[in-house]
Design a protein around this nucleic acid. Structure first.
Length: 284
DNA sequence: TAGGCCATCTGGTCCT
DNA sequence: AGGACCAGATGGCCTA
């Protein structure tokens, strides 16, 4: 159940070998980690395994990459909150990844057209699942009535129109992801770890987990500060208001050295629901 | 070379 | 209806 291995993170970035990561318990719920790590990596791992075993043919009896296949790892997948959302999980009607069961002629045509013209200046040509022989494409043929009605409308569109629509949607999605990455970079900037050209930047998952950690630590720090203040003033200082310290969490980030000097009491898991990511990681 | 991380495409679903 | 959001799929790049 070990998802994030601090040793792995530390190995990737020398900066992470000391300081905050070493001391702070990386708190995260197991569910969140399963979700964040997700089936993608597992699926990729399995695919790579199959590739290495030369088992990419139709023999999926041993290890199947089909989302609907009862892979042992899938047992850890949280149930999707949205009905039959997503792709490939609806009734096991997903196809294999062989080109033969690829999809609707529409997609094939789009492939040809976009492959020839180049989808977008910024596109990674050939990359991505762009022109995949996807399970989702197949599953779309069994989609809901609402979706089918939309498809009816789309079927009435001409090829260039569909192509334009696809490009537009793709562009929007790219922009959305870029914005997300910008926000992620902004989060990295305020994280208490060394920044620099020679330092590998935190991965997204590491950034999120570190951010959570950091917030918890600051919260605890604030609580402790309030407790100390109340002890010092013996409760006479009614004028003291938590908001006086509240700005702390929103002010400039603590320097790494300062964070690293935080009392150990602030670095332990603080909530019952918190799960340390593997005892092997954070045995302090 | 395996595994981790990422960008991108894509279809489905939800929301305004 | 259109856009936002989500998650699966896929291939590229990088590192140990």
């Amino acid at each position: 159940m070990l998802i994030i291995d601090q040793r792995d993170l530390s190995a990737r970035s020398p900066v992470l070998r000391c300081g905050f990561w070493e001391r702070a318990p990386l708190l995260a719920s197991t569910e969140a980690c399963v979700k964040l790590r997700g089936p993608r990596e597992r699926g990729r791992t399995l695919r790579k395994l199959r590739l290495s075993l030369g088992a990419m043919d139709s023999d999926a009896s041993l290890v199947s990459s089909r989302p609907s296949s009862p892979e042992p790892d899938d047992l850890f997948l949280p149930a999707r909150s949205k009905g039959s959302g997503g792709s490939g999980f609806t009734g096991g009607t997903v196809s294999s990844s062989t080109p033969s069961d690829c999809p609707p002629e529409l997609s094939a045509e789009l492939r040809g057209a976009m492959g020839a013209a180049g989808a977008h200046p910024g596109d990674k040509l050939g990359g991505g699942g762009g022109f995949k022989s996807s399970s989702s494409s197949t599953s779309s043929s069994t989609s809901s009535a609402a979706a089918s009605s939309t498809k009816k409308d789309k079927k009435q569109m001409t090829e260039p129109e569909l192509q334009q629509l696809r490009l537009k949607i793709n562009s929007r999605e790219r922009k959305r992801m870029h914005d997300l990455n910008i926000a992620m970079d902004g989060l990295r900037e305020v994280m208490p770890y060394a920044h620099g050209p020679s330092v590998r930047k935190l991965s997204k998952i590491a950034t999120l987990l570190l951010a959570r950690n950091y917030i918890l630590m600051l919260t605890n720090s604030l609580e402790e500060m309030k407790r100390l203040v109340s002890e010092i003033y013996g409760g006479h200082h009614a004028g003291f208001h938590p908001s006086a310290c509240g700005g702390l969490a929103h002010s400039a980030p603590l320097p790494a050295a300062r964070v690293n000097a935080a009392p150990a009491t602030m670095l332990r898991p603080q909530r019952p629901g918190d799960v340390q990511l593997g005892a092997s990681l954070y045995e302090l």
